[in-house]
């Protein structure tokens, strides 16, 4: 990735696209407001170009993650009192959502 690509201007279309990927609805005025803000945040990344980082492996976690195992023991959980208790809509002990293929409103 070159510096010029890194400093590329963020377009309103980019912000619209990203909002769709992020499952957020933005209207015209919000796209207008967010575009320069997101651009200035992404501009911070240009500071990284001042360093030669090629020899460093990426770190995702401060001291590396290891798989953690435990015995596979069956535990009883009351889903009605637990996970389902505060769900917006429930039917037959399951989370209920609108039709996946229905019309948008």
């Amino acid at each position: 990735m070159t510096e010029t690509e890194n400093n590329k201007k963020l377009s309103k279309e980019d912000v619209q696209k990203v909002s769709e990927l992020a499952m957020l609805n933005l209207d015209e005025s919000q796209v207008e407001a967010f575009t320069p803000q997101l651009e200035s945040i992404l501009d911070l990344a240009s500071e990284l170009d001042a360093f030669d980082l090629d020899k460093f492996e990426p770190t995702a976690h401060p001291f590396g993650l290891q798989n953690v195992f435990r015995d596979d023991e069956i535990e009883r959980v009351d889903v009605k009192q637990g996970a389902l208790a505060t769900a917006p809509d429930v039917e037959a002990n399951q989370f209920k959502v609108p039709p996946a293929l229905g019309e948008e409103r």
């Binding site: 890194n6 990203v18 992020a22 967010f34 990284l48 980082l53 460093f56 990426p58 770190t59």
Partner: peptide, 28 residues
């Protein structure tokens, strides 16, 4: 919303290495 969108952008195809990847190298 701003942070979710910045994160989504930084992780998206074509930008991952320049943003998230490089940031992880700086972390190392």
């Amino acid at each position: 919303k701003r942070r979710i969108m910045v994160g989504t952008y930084a992780l998206s195809a074509g930008y991952f290495d320049a943003f998230y990847g490089k940031a992880q190298q700086l972390r190392s």
